[in-house]
Amino acid sequence: MEAIEYTTPKTLAEAVQAMADKGDRARALAGGTDLLVQLRGGRRSADLIVDVKDVPELNQISYDAQDGLTIGAAAPCYQIYQDPAVAANYPGLVDSASLIGSIQIQGRASLGGNLCNSAPSADAIPVMIALGAVANIAGPNGTRQVAVEDFCTGPGRNVLESGEVLVSVTMPAPQANSGASYLRFIPRNEMDIAVAGVGSSVVLDASGQNFVSARISLASVAPTPVFCREAGASLSGKAVSDEAVEAAAQLAMADAVPINDMRGTVRQRIHLVGVLTRRTLNIAIQRARGEE
């Protein structure tokens, strides 16, 4: 790694100032599990590392039955899945946070880093999209919010402008009779990059027999995470049935535009989107019914 400077701002204002002063030559550091690998491998370079882990807003995990869940951008995965409110209300998020890397990686890796690294294969992004998450951003010109489905713009690229930091991600409070789930396919049991991944969320009516709404999102099958607007919308108002789930899976498959690479082929990946969409919808339905 090249010579570099390091700073540990204690407030959000100081973090934004440090980022803005160095512009494109500054990089925020959360868990470092992407950044340090990239700096060392020469895939990214920077003059200044802004360690954002001492900024209070970036570390909080707060849940409120009205306002929902806000997770600081730098909070590591283990804090997310060990949080009782997250475990009780957002099991889909626990699915993602507990499969990223190893126990060692989960001790450091953050949701914010997963989002800002903007890998097409990022395992935490589809479920955030399925849950309707919003990214809270602060920069030299104030704060703004961007829906997570609009955050990534290409592999490793996103809407953050020079000087901006991701502060947190907010997920609305779960509605009654709702559930979510994330699954990925990897050839091993642990420690691999998704060949394909799917995050789904559903809201059912009080009987648990009909969909009120649903959201579906995909990993590793396009240059960015994919929000399958039509696949989710196709379920609104339908009775819960294998046919309805299958129809949504077909629509999700139509949104996948994967590539052939060493991890998988186009055909396999599209097939996997179908399988994982069915499975994640069925898990989300069970969770919405309180069966799991």
Binding site: T33, L36, Q104
Partner: peptide
Amino acid sequence: CTVVFDGRIVTSCLVLGVE
């Protein structure tokens, strides 16, 4: 390179010394 860092196991190759 696993060490315990503030109560959690981490890979010390992905932590900066200054941290």
